[in-house]
């Protein structure tokens, strides 16, 4: 297809072009500007190791949104201390926790450490719950669909970031 030849060429070459330009993986701990005590293997400087440290379990989402409205729209003036921090969130459908890593003052990764939530389909689409065609889902590990939002995690990330604030 002549019309798509250039697009195909660009998409095929993109990964190679990024590496050719010098992209290299650097260990997050190496970036951490001289802070040696918070290695990626488990330094947990200020937060309690228990994921149950999150208050207000039933108010999922309210805390993050109120903080957002207070924050400045321009670049992050908030500074974070390097290290790893945990946060949890929950509502009546379950609980979840994240582990957030700060290196060089930046959020370098937010890992989901537990996720146990289930929204019944009748809650989301009551009109269709009974008409759903049952399909064999054995070995279906991945599902393609419209991009899911990470909204469920907002509360957990909020508490982890609160701990990271300098």
């Amino acid at each position: 297809m002549a019309a798509s030849a250039k697009l195909l060429a660009l998409c095929t070459a993109a990964v190679g072009a990024v590496y050719a330009a010098g992209y290299v993986y650097t260990q997050p701990s190496a970036e951490a500007s001289g802070v040696s005590s918070h290695g990626s293997l488990g330094g947990n400087p200020s937060s309690s190791p228990s994921p149950s440290s999150s208050p207000a379990p039933s108010s999922s989402g309210s805390a993050p949104s109120s903080s957002a409205s207070a924050s400045s729209p321009t670049a992050s003036k908030v500074t974070y201390r390097d290290g790893t921090y945990t946060g949890s969130g929950s509502n009546v459908y379950g609980t979840l926790s994240v582990k957030l890593t700060i290196a060089g003052g930046k959020i370098t990764s937010v890992k989901i450490t537990s996720y146990n939530m289930h929204y019944p389909s009748s809650f989301i689409y009551p009109q269709i719950a009974n008409e759903v065609i049952q399909m064999q889902t054995y070995r279906v590990y991945n599902i393609t669909g419209a991009t899911a939002s990470s909204y469920n995690f907002a509360e957990a990330v909020y508490y982890a970031l609160q701990k990271a604030k300098a």
Binding site: A68, S71, A154, L161
Partner: peptide, 8 residues
Amino acid sequence: YLTGDESD
């Protein structure tokens, strides 16, 4: 999605 900051 992480900081909750609104961009303008």
